[in-house]
Design a protein around this nucleic acid. Sequence first.
DNA 1: CCGGACGCCTGTCGGC
DNA 2: TGCCGACAGGCGTCCG
Length: 271
Amino acid sequence: MPELPEVETTLRGISPHLRGERIGQLLVRDRRLRLPVPREIESRVQGQRILALSRRGKYLLIGLECGTILIHLGMSGSLRVLASDTLPGKHDHLDLRLHNGKCLRMRDPRRFGMFLWVPDPPAAHPLLAHLGPEPLGSEFDGDYLYAQSRGRKCAVKAFIMDASLVVGVGNIYANEALHLAGIHPARPSNRVGRERYGRLARQIKLVLEKAIALGGTTLRDFVREDGSQGYFALSLKVYQRAGESCTSCGTPIRQRRIGQRSSFFCPLCQR
DNA sequence: CCGGACGCCTGTCGGC
DNA sequence: TGCCGACAGGCGTCCG
């Protein structure tokens, strides 16, 4: 599910409820996530005050007095803020209970997510240490993409989805940004010029910003912290629109597998 | 170093 | 109606 806009939406939703609060009990119902929820995590977080919340790529960071809770939502994860006595559903694997009677509840049907405690500084943790720049930051631009792409033959779509190049761009927004920039997803990275990488970097930023403004994309599992949906799905121009008309030229949108991921594009607008 | 394949899970959908 | 395979927003790991 969750790509950068959904994680950012979740961050903005939960932050006001959690910042400054003290953690009571962490209740883990099922440790079997992508990485097992560590045995010692309950004692690590018990009684600690939440100092700050942030995002790095698709990871959510909850900064404590000692260490940081690192959360990844995988494919189907979501976080909600609820009263602690709300009855849990089948896939509600853990509750981070606060002293104020609320809890942060993680749901993840496919269990591809992560919920970890990492020591300070979190950026040094192996899961975060090798991540590329944030796409919404100034370091990420067309010149950066162009420079990184030299000598790389993989499809440009796989290239921009590589988290060591740039974080946060998943399958939905990679498809959308390539369409907006007029670039064919299967084009080899080293056969995209500087100009077109400039357009691509701009469109990645624009599509992510617009999706954040609309609360992310809800296809199936993603919900905001209050249970409401994101509305960017209404703005999708190619993703999951195979056979439908391109919004700019009317040509039927094609679907094809590129780099093991379902890819959607307009054969006329994208070259 | 790079690129490609695979596995991890559950739920849903389409075809027979 | 039931069964079966394909597929789904991600990513770490392994192999050539």
